[in-house]
Every structure is written in structure tokens, then in C-alpha cells.
């Protein structure tokens, strides 16, 4: 039994790691007023760019290739994050449309490049998981401090609540939002790098499998608070871990007349819990007031 608890605990932490990284990106972006369903695309692109770069540089040794992989993920995340900021803030595209576009682009591009460049598949040495785990444990506190204790964090919260009010206080929203959304791309892409470099050591199409959306759900679940969002990530991570344990151990569970041992049903568990969690919390959650609002025209 204690062995089951141990493996559930570690499983929860490991599953929560990419969710937490992406969720912190989500908090930064949404607190600044930019809806970010593009997290999914950031994760997928980060996963692919990381593993690609690590593969190309694998001849230089494990450490170099790992670092280059991380760096590549950071860069693609920054580029896509900047793109999302540009589309929503400069061209004033609807935030959801922009995010959807980035997700479709990421999905199509990674699939094409992967199948085209690696028809035989690929495998890398990668990076130990604990490194990401440490980052995921520290990051929520760092983001919380950033938001509450720094001038930049105050500006970020202000432009998310009221772009107009912030401007009247002498703070322009654009630089803050660009930085926040770019950073969100970086963090979510790191979550993706975890999936490919630390978890799987390879890439498979659609490896993100909705984790960006679940990270966003964790943000809402945590009421846009970094620590709350991390809690949400742990909550959803637990159900991923539970689902895996149940499948591995062939633990049969009959509930509501359904045999929940069926692996298809078990696969759904984290997603079902997402819906359950959101419907029970969403009525009470108050998003930043200017979230997703279009820039006022003079």
C-alpha cells in the first residue's frame, strides 16, 4: 500500500510538472489581460524544438545537447509568445482566435516536420526529470513574489484589470503585456521540453495531448493566483497519476455500473476531473477585469 502511495505521489509530481510550468505562463499572461489558450501550442512547439535541438547536438555530449534543447524550447516559446502578443495587442485579433491559430500552426508544423525529418522516429538522452521538478516547485512562489512584491508585477496586475486606469496612472499596457505573454510562451514551452526531453526522450505527434488547456483550467481553478494554479496542476496531475497506476496494476473498479478498468475510460479521467473541477469553481472565480477585452479605440 505504501508503495502505491509513493508511486502515486511521485507520479502526481511528475505529471504536475509540465502543467505547473505552463500554468505559470497562463497566470502571467491572463493576469496581464491576455487570454492564453495558445499554451497548448507553446507546449507542443517547445517539446518538438527541444528534442530536435538535442538530437542535432547529441554528438557534443549529454550536457551540451540538453542545454541546447532547453535553449531551443525557450526560444521557440518566446517567438510564439511574442506572436500571440503581437496578434492580440497590435492587430487586435480576438485572443481566442489568435490562440487557436497558434495551436493549429504548432500542431500542423510539428507533425509535418517530425514525419518529414524523422521518419524512423528519434531518441535522445535528455535531461533528468528532477531538474524540471525543482523548477516547477520554485516557480509558483517566484511568480507570486513577482506579482505582489515588484513594480513590474503591480503594473502587470494593473493592465490586466484596467488598461485605461493603468494608462491614467502613467503605465502603458503594451510593453507589459508583450513581456508577460512572451514569458508565458517561454514557460509553457519549457513544460513541453519536459515532455519530450525528460519524460519521453523522444517526440510523438500531439504529445501535448491537451495539457495546455488543462494548465489553463488549473489557472482558473486557482483563481488566477500562482499558488492556487500550482495547486490546480497538482490536482489534475494526481488524476493522471491515478489513471496510470490503475492501468498498470489492473485494479478493477466498478462504479455506476461501469468497469472503470477499461483503459479508454481511464484515459478520460483527468479530463473528466477538469470539467468537474471547473464547473464547481467557475461560478466563484473572478477573472482579471480587462481579460480578453479589445483595446478601446479613441
Amino acid at each position: 500500500m505504501s508503495e502505491l502511495i509513493m508511486s502515486l505521489t511521485w507520479g502526481t509530481l511528475y505529471y504536475a510538472t509540465p502543467l505547473t510550468l505552463a500554468a505559470m505562463g497562463g497566470v502571467l499572461s491572463e493576469k496581464a489581460g491576455v487570454v492564453n489558450i495558445a499554451l497548448e501550442g507553446f507546449i507542443l512547439s517547445g517539446a518538438f524544438a527541444g528534442v530536435c535541438a538535442a538530437d542535432v547536438t547529441s554528438k557534443y555530449g549529454v550536457i551540451i545537447s540538453g542545454l541546447v534543447g532547453i535553449l531551443a524550447a525557450i526560444m521557440i516559446g518566446a517567438v510564439l509568445g511574442f506572436l500571440h502578443a503581437f496578434l492580440t495587442q497590435k492587430t487586435r485579433m480576438d485572443h481566442v482566435v489568435s490562440g487557436l491559430g497558434i495551436n493549429l500552426l504548432a500542431s500542423g508544423a510539428t507533425q509535418y516536420l517530425y514525419l518529414h525529418e524523422y521518419p524512423q522516429g528519434l531518441s535522445v538522452t535528455g535531461i533528468p526529470r528532477w531538474m524540471f521538478l525543482v523548477a516547477a516547485l520554485v516557480l509558483p512562489f517566484a511568480v507570486q513574489l513577482l506579482l505582489v512584491r515588484t513594480h513590474w508585477g503591480l503594473k502587470l496586475r494593473a493592465v490586466g484589470e484596467s488598461r485605461e486606469g493603468a494608462s491614467m496612472a502613467g503605465v502603458s499596457a503594451l510593453p507589459v503585456r508583450f513581456a508577460a505573454v512572451t514569458l508565458s510562451g517561454v514557460l509553457a514551452a519549457l513544460g513541453g521540453a519536459y515532455l519530450s526531453l525528460a519524460d519521453d526522450h523522444n517526440f510523438s505527434t500531439d504529445v501535448s495531448a491537451g495539457k495546455g488547456y488543462i494548465a489553463l483550467a488549473a489557472v482558473i481553478f486557482g483563481k488566477w493566483n500562482p499558488l492556487g494554479a500550482a495547486g490546480g496542476a497538482l490536482f489534475f496531475g494526481f488524476f493522471y497519476a491515478l489513471q496510470t497506476e490503475l492501468q498498470i496494476r489492473h485494479i478493477s473498479a466498478h462504479f455506476l455500473g461501469i468497469s472503470w478498468t477499461n483503459s479508454f475510460l481511464l484515459d478520460m479521467l483527468p479530463y473528466i476531473m477538469t470539467i468537474v473541477a471547473l464547473t464547481s469553481v467557475i461560478g466563484k472565480a473572478v477573472p482579471p477585469a480587462d481579460l480578453g477585452k479589445e483595446e478601446a479605440t479613441d
Binding site: 513594480h151 503591480l154 503594473k155 496586475r157 494593473a158 484589470e161 484596467s162 486606469g165 493603468a166 496612472a169 503605465v171 473572478v286 482579471p288 477585469a289
Partner: peptide
Amino acid sequence: IPALSILDNLML
């Protein structure tokens, strides 16, 4: 900004 404290509004 209604959601921020008065102090935050002053410091902003």
C-alpha cells in the same frame, strides 16, 4: 483600478 488596493493604486 477597483480590484487593487488603494496602496497599490498609489504605488502604480
